[in-house]
Write a protein that binds this DNA or RNA. Structure first.
Lengths: 186, 186
DNA sequence: ACAGCCATGTAACTTGTTACATGATTTT
DNA sequence: AAAATCATGTAACAAGTTACATGGCTGT
């Protein structure tokens, strides 16, 4: 729903397809490249759903799209409604680890370590980008910071997983200790 | 790709459809409910792709599914390959804010505040669950912690956004630094 | 008998995504 | 002229998701 709504929101004024991609990529700081084809498929679906309509052509002959009334309502609703976090998006990594701990043939520790390497590398890439002025643009800078914050949290969680897994491994042979008060979550 | 691979991984031993849903939900601590129908649609697609095959019926007459050789390879590959973070998943919230700062009719501060409320509420829900022993199960506990860590990071980022937006707002009344026409990328 | 869960499926749909076709214009 | 970029689109597929149909079995 992100691309769809982002394009809708960018149609605050009439724009043509190629322009929409450029706007999208510029604002998200090229963190999420967008195939041009997807702009057009999305636009035609939006048109089908009555949220967007053709708005003639500009001076250079490029065909413009504009919001319908329903489209304006949709955009307003998108901005007025927070992204649902009470029923959060499936997270592939969490699912993977949750499944891995139950499948005996999988070395969970290795999965965790590999993921930390990968995430660490991504994090360094984000920081390099950030330092090299890719965050000068306000929107792009915020997006980059979002990725950084998320990667940091992911690494902290992976560390947390490791220590819990170590404890679980040692208690699986010994009797269960009444673990309760601890610094981190739970 | 999460559901598909999770089901594949759970098929380490032959199982039937309903069982797969139960396993999935138990391990992810009911954080991500899974419609039973999706289990069957996914299974038939996996069968179509040669990763899974029918494996007879169990004592109670329930039809079992099992991994093919290709399926085993696929599972191994899933666990051996870290979740891609160098080309991260589109994040709806980041996109929303990135677009919002460029659309003058949107009150970005309000969007941020509403999101913080929603995320805060979700976070409290997770903590309540965690305290009420939903994290006794190892896998479920890790998933819950993941959600907690992610929500905390999101809130920190939202705070960070607010302060950057305040700073940007105070400099936007002052004359614009004349170098922005260059277009972000270098 | 009836409600409700167990169990298996199918039809239909949404969003995301890419690969390709086609022509115009611009750059080298 | 050739290559690249601009610009618009289409066909096809992947993955997620839900609503519904169907039948068996269980408890009240």
């Amino acid at each position: 729903m992100s691309v769809k709504h982002a394009l809708l929101a960018l149609l605050e004024k009439p724009r043509y397809g190629y322009e929409l991609r450029a706007e999208f990529e510029q604002r998200t700081g090229a963190s999420w490249p967008l195939n041009v084809g997807q702009v057009y498929t999305t636009l035609s679906r939006l048109e089908r759903d009555g949220l967007v309509e053709a708005g003639g052509t500009d001076a250079e002959g490029r065909s413009l799209y504009q919001l319908t009334e329903a489209g304006k309502v949709e955009v307003k609703g998108w901005f007025d409604t927070p992204v649902e976090r009470t029923q959060p998006q499936r997270d592939e990594l969490a699912i993977k680890l949750a499944v891995a701990v139950a499948v005996p043939s999988v070395d969970v520790g290795k999965v965790v370590q590999q993921q930390r390497n990968a995430t660490m590398q991504a994090l360094q890439g984000y920081r390099r980008q950030s330092r090299s002025g890719a965050g000068d643009d306000l929107a792009g800078g915020l997006v980059l910071d979002r990725l950084i914050f998320a990667a940091e949290a992911e690494i902290r969680w992976l560390d947390h997983c490791e220590s819990r897994l170590r404890r679980a491994a040692s208690t699986s042979t010994a009797p269960e200790p009444a673990e309760s008060a601890e610094g981190g979550a739970r």
